[in-house]
Write a protein that binds this DNA or RNA. Structure first.
Lengths: 101, 101
DNA sequence: AATATATTTAGATAATTAACTAATTGTATT
DNA sequence: AATACAATTAGTTAATTATCTAAATATATT
């Protein structure tokens, strides 16, 4: 899960994911949407693939990248841990612990 | 939203959030859970606060940090953009281009 | 086999960042 | 006002990372 958050922490990589949301693309096509070099695109795609946020499939001369929805679901799960944050604490702590120093 | 993902990309900061999920804490209390210096804790809390993932409230000598659930919800929203990734593309692209290798 | 195209690898550099120690600020207590 | 405690700021360092150019690999076409 650390790899996932690391991968998502870069705007370029999030934009790549947004592009892949609509259609599978290969590095050259992705590259056309940015103003950075192809090796940089490769670097970002490696990090996304390492986090399993994207899948690759080689077809001839091209390598097609696609979104891996499974890992997206797992990431959402992480957030759901924070769904019901301290309900009774809001009553206990704030009322009772003021003079505890 | 970039600040949010940047803030979430560090394991220490995610652990801090997990601690704050159960109760509001001040930097000294948070510090006791880690093996890093207090200034480092301050640094992480600054990034979390900048991303608005936590709120601070000064009470006398202490500053209490708490989870800001609103921003968590916004982060989940980001993921929901990827809910229905390329449905017709799965039919067109993958069906048609298979045998071109 | 020679050439063109697509992508990655290698290696370097500049920017960012997480960590530290030492010093400072701010609040409470005696 | 002097002391103690809580937290931050300042300034440094080492590690990470995003980027680049040049070179290498791999596939397809002529």
């Amino acid at each position: 899960m650390n790899d996932v958050f690391k991968a998502l922490s870069d705007p370029t990589r999030r934009e790549i994911l947004r592009l892949l949301k609509d259609e599978d693309l290969c590095p050259g096509e992705i590259w056309e949407h940015f103003h950075i070099s192809k090796p940089s695109i490769t670097h970002h795609l490696n990090l996304l693939a390492q986090a399993k946020l994207v899948l690759r499939e080689k077809r001839g001369q091209n390598i097609f990248y696609s979104i891996n929805t499974t890992v997206f679901q797992e990431a959402v799960q992480w957030f759901f841990e924070f769904k019901n944050v301290k309900i009774e604490n809001d009553l206990n702590d704030k009322g009772g612990e003021k003079d505890h120093e």
